[in-house]
């Protein structure tokens, strides 16, 4: 029978903590960038200009139907060749996950915007608002409320997807775990602890999200 021994792993706890911090930094960067990219893509896809809708549609479909790991390799190993630039793991990962999550966010934004009744647009137009004003003051505030659950789900997916960056040697939690497992010869304990860290932090975020959803639900009209 194998005897579990967490002490060598716990002694190096700071090592994993660095990884966890890097995971959070990457998630935050990709998330904030992804939301902007997603909103822009959604607007482009909803516009009436073909030169905007077609490219936006292509970006969205390509990034939704190809595996994120292939995208990451493309950005890390392939893109520097075309642009003849230096690529760091962090930059490649931020770019990949920004656009990848942006493609998914775009569909969420679009569905949310489309779900707002036509009457709202007409009413805003009737009191003299322009398209942009109506979008910003009337449509988006309502749409964001409806999209909130799927947006949280996507953000959690994004946090889980960031583990892929370990394959291009960015020191995220999983990468640090791999290093530590080799250093301490305790892969069982290391990977179990890392799985638990992800489990606890992601469960905590989902818990917060569901509490906020309930608050939204109480504060008026809400589509689950």
């Amino acid at each position: 029978m194998y005897e579990w021994d967490f002490s060598p792993v716990l002694a190096e706890g700071g090592f994993l903590l660095v990884g966890f911090r890097n995971t959070l930094i990457l998630t935050a960067t990709a998330l904030s960038g992804g939301l902007v990219v997603g909103l822009l893509l959604a607007f482009a896809r909803l516009s009436h200009r073909r030169w905007l809708t077609v490219p936006a549609g292509i970006v969205i479909e390509v990034f939704r139907t190809t595996p994120p790991l292939v995208q990451l390799f493309w950005f890390y190993f392939g893109l520097p060749i075309v642009l003849s630039i230096e690529m760091t793991p962090f930059l490649a990962a931020s770019l990949t996950f920004m656009i990848q999550s942006g493609a998914f966010f775009a569909e969420i934004f679009r569905a949310g915007i489309v779900s707002i009744e036509k009457g709202q647009w007409e009413a805003a137009k009737a009191i003299g608002m322009t398209y942009n004003q109506c979008m910003r003051r009337v449509i988006l505030p309502q749409a964001v409320k409806r999209m909130f659950p799927s947006m949280m789900e996507r953000s959690i997916e994004l946090m889980k997807t960031t583990t892929l960056v370990a394959t291009v040697s960015y020191a995220d939690l999983l990468f640090q775990a791999n290093e530590l497992a080799q250093k301490t010869f305790r892969p069982l304990e290391v990977f179990t602890i890392v799985a638990l860290i992800y489990f606890v932090s992601i469960s905590f975020i989902s818990f917060l999200a569901s509490r906020m959803e309930r608050r939204f639900a109480k504060s008026g009209e809400f589509t689950p």
């Binding site: 194998y2 583990t163 999983l174 892969p187 069982l188 489990f199």
Partner: peptide, 22 residues
Amino acid sequence: EFFRNTPVLVQILWFYYALPII
């Protein structure tokens, strides 16, 4: 809950490196 709230890559590596030990 467990399998939805942990990254699939961590699960694969756990099964590959950790499970054979027990």
